[in-house]
């Protein structure tokens, strides 16, 4: 309770209330996250259960009864007779899950490695930063393609669907950790020579404790900003990978897979198969980006 009232009274919250863009972005993000979470209860259909679909419902126009089955779908149906509205909700779940997990993975991995590299220095630092170089050498899409390829090689064919999502998370996460590592390492290099850390060292605190208690909190600001922007990037990256044919499986599509499928219908007039998933992705990525932007400015003491 106290934490909440503290937060409500805080400078950050005040600045948040004063920024209409941030408030709108927050509301949109929250709405999207909530509808993804409660998709099974909101969606009129479970598009991930192929046996329940009727192919003849395919390409129904939004709000117009299907000529064969007479069923009506608010946002129309896609080429498999899936209700676009339900598919978006379920796809949003996959996209958000992949995005959040990938960023969490990258953040934890990158921060830990960056902290160790910056604090320990010497050979450890060299090795970690050289690994980061290798990582940077492969552009994100290539890393993801590579991991996808290897995962496909080592998992038996029958499990590929189950692992596909986890491979995506691993692939996007692995291509993203270097940013966190660099920022945290940079901040650690600055902090470690400051008097308070030196003092902590002198009174005999363990390196781990110093890192966690004193250095990490000081890097939280920039890490949070990177994390927010990475979330938007990760969701887009998943879509891009889907275009290259290594995204979420078509029977359990993410927003990116839906857009990849939908772009095939751009010229044919079935605009709804592309438009609604694209607008959803745009709304999600845009509001997360705007939140990240606002957060960056708000946490930057020099800009107050």
């Amino acid at each position: 309770m106290e934490a909440v009232s503290n937060f409500l009274a805080s400078d950050l919250f005040y600045r948040f209330r004063k920024s209409p863009v941030a408030v709108i972005a927050f509301i949109v993000t929250a709405l999207l996250v909530l509808s993804a979470l409660f998709a099974p209860w909101i969606a009129p259909q479970n598009p991930f259960d192929p046996g329940s679909l009727n192919l003849m419902n395919g390409f129904s126009q939004p709000g117009v009864p299907n000529q064969f089955t007479g069923e009506t779908f608010m946002l129309g149906t896609d080429d498999q007779g899936r209700d676009v509205f339900s598919t978006i909700l379920y796809g949003l779940r996959i996209s958000l899950f992949v995005g959040f997990s990938a960023v969490m993975f990258a953040m934890v991995l990158g921060s830990v490695l960056g902290l160790i590299a910056g604090y320990t220095g010497g050979r450890t630092d060299t090795i970690i930063m050289r690994i980061a170089d290798i990582q940077l050498t492969f552009p994100a899409i290539l890393v993801a393609l590579l991991i996808f390829g290897i995962a496909k090689g080592i998992t038996p064919p029958s499990y590929r669907n189950e692992v596909a999502i986890w491979v995506l998370i691993l692939a996007i996460g692995l291509s993203d950790w270097v940013q966190f590592a660099r920022v945290v390492r940079g901040a650690t290099l600055v902090e470690r020579n400051k008097e308070y850390v030196q003092a902590a060292k002198l009174i005999g605190r363990k390196p781990m404790a110093i890192m966690l208690k004193h250095i990490l909190p000081n890097t939280l600001g920039p890490v949070l900003v990177i994390a927010t922007i990475s979330l938007a990037l990760a969701i887009i990256a998943e879509a891009t990978l889907s275009f290259l044919g290594v995204g979420a499986p078509p029977t359990q599509p993410s927003l990116g897979t839906l857009i990849r499928i939908g772009q095939g219908f751009l010229f044919s007039g079935e605009y709804w198969i592309l438009l609604y998933p694209a607008v959803t992705l745009l709304a999600l990525a845009l509001s997360v980006n705007l939140l990240g932007d606002w957060l960056r400015d708000a946490l930057n003491p020099k800009l107050k």
Partner: peptide
């Protein structure tokens, strides 16, 4: 400009191209 510029990075490249 700040807001609309974000639209460009909130859609996948392939879709922008198409």
């Amino acid at each position: 400009i700040m807001t609309t510029s974000l639209i460009g990075v909130s859609l996948p490249t392939f879709l922008i191209g198409i």
